[in-house]
Computed example of a mutant assay.
Amino acid sequence: MFASKLATLTRNPPRLLNLPSLARSSALLNAKSTLAVARNLHSLSRQRPSALSQNIALQSATPRGQQWRGARWDRYTNADYGSKRGSSYGSNPNPGGFFSRLSPEALVYSIIGANGVVFLVWSSAQQRQKSFGDTKLLRWMVDNFSATYINLTSGRVWTLLTPAFSHIEPMHLMVNMFMLYTFGTDMARLLGPKRFLMFYLGAAAFGNLLSDLIRGIYLPAKTGNYRTAAQPAIGASTSVVGTTTLFACLYPHATLQLFFIVPVPAWLATAGFIGWDVYRVMRSDRTRVDGAGHLGGAAAALGYYWFRLRPLIRRMR
């Protein structure tokens, strides 16, 4: 159960992670956390799925996971895997839903695969335009797979989610997917596949909403330039920033290697990257990086940690 997994976060230090120089779009957010939080993620990430399932199943049977039973707690922990008394993927005593059979790794690979498919569609749309002058598919992709204030006010609310699976440039795709694999696999193991997917989509929706409002209302009012309302924003950065921010909230003292060389704590890397995104937004000029979307994804992660995970962790201490 989710409560049991949180209870194990007080034993071993987290593993050393690398943060590539190209991953500015995957900024971390500084957040206060307690020293008693989160120490067993390293050992979980190194186990094979079968061993991990057995480990969690044994922990779920201990009395400690039962002391916080209650209506609200049950509603939260039982939402994991599609059954009323699910505990962990692969060890659900009453399998009854898709997520009861989906491993965290499979979920992350599925998200990466979906991003790859949408990237191929973008490539096809661009090729059609160059070779035949056909812009129909390209315009359809802009209308349905990019975040703009125009799309939002036109009723295409699904564009709050679809940009999180949308990339045009290969390097942009590779950097975001590398960061998603590095941090997302561990977070999916901790939260469970269903809850991590909801978090991924929630961070995307909040990040793209903030981006649309800033580029469609704030910047035009400040600069008088209304072109930003139609400027598209794409990429999984909103969700990836949310994922890395959640990691920083849980492990503020984890060591990250910036540019693969400089060791920095997660909280410091968080403060630096988020500060840089704030600076970009305040400059009010057009950039290739959607700083507003990053800030929205980070804010979603901070809110999820503060109002959902932190109370559970404090109870398990």
Rank of each mutant, 00 (worst) to 15 (best):
L219V: 15
G116D: 03
F119M: 15
P232I: 05
R283W: 12
L191G: 01
L246A: 03
Y251C: 11
T244E: 04
A269C: 10
R39G: 14
S25H: 14
K84C: 09
I261L: 15
N225I: 13
F183G: 01
L52R: 12
H167V: 05
Q47Y: 12
S83Y: 03
T62A: 14
R46N: 09
A269N: 13
G207T: 05
A271T: 07
G97P: 04
T270I: 13
G202S: 13
S45L: 12
S43I: 10
A3T: 08
K32I: 11
S124K: 07
M198W: 11
F206G: 08
L120Q: 08
V142P: 00
F2P: 00
S131C: 10
A36Y: 12
S166R: 01
F206W: 11
P265G: 01
I217E: 14
N30P: 15
T245R: 02
F273H: 04
A188M: 01
V108D: 10
A205M: 04
R11W: 06
F183S: 00
P13F: 10
K84G: 11
A106P: 02
Y218T: 07
N30G: 14
I111V: 14
Y109Q: 14
W267G: 02
I168R: 14
L41M: 13
V37G: 09
G296V: 06
V142N: 15
C249K: 09
S26P: 00
Y200I: 03
F99Y: 10
L213T: 03
T238D: 03
Y251G: 02
S60W: 01
N225M: 06
P232Q: 06
N151R: 02
A271P: 03
T77P: 01
A221G: 13
A301K: 00
W68V: 08
H167T: 07
Q126P: 00
A221L: 15
L41Y: 07
I261A: 15
A61L: 03
S87Y: 08
F199C: 05
N40G: 03
N18C: 11
R139D: 12
R69Y: 12
G184S: 02
G235E: 01
A298W: 02
Y305V: 00
L52P: 02
I112T: 09
T162M: 02
Y81P: 04
F247Y: 09
T62I: 08
G303N: 07
F178M: 03
R314D: 12
L44I: 12
L9H: 04
S123C: 08
T270K: 14
Q257N: 15
T243Y: 01
T270M: 14
A61V: 01
T62L: 13
S88T: 15
A51L: 10
L190D: 04
G133M: 04
T243I: 05
Q127W: 08
S110A: 13
Y200W: 11
F247R: 00
C249H: 07
G272S: 13
I234G: 05
S26N: 08
A236C: 11
A204G: 11
L256P: 07
W267D: 08
A248G: 08
A36W: 09
L190V: 06
L250K: 02
S50Y: 12
G224M: 03
R48H: 15
P20D: 00
T159W: 10
I274C: 09
N92F: 01
G303W: 05
R75Y: 06
A229M: 10
P265D: 01
W140G: 01
L102M: 15
T135D: 07
S88Y: 14
Q59G: 05
R72L: 11
D80L: 09
A79P: 00
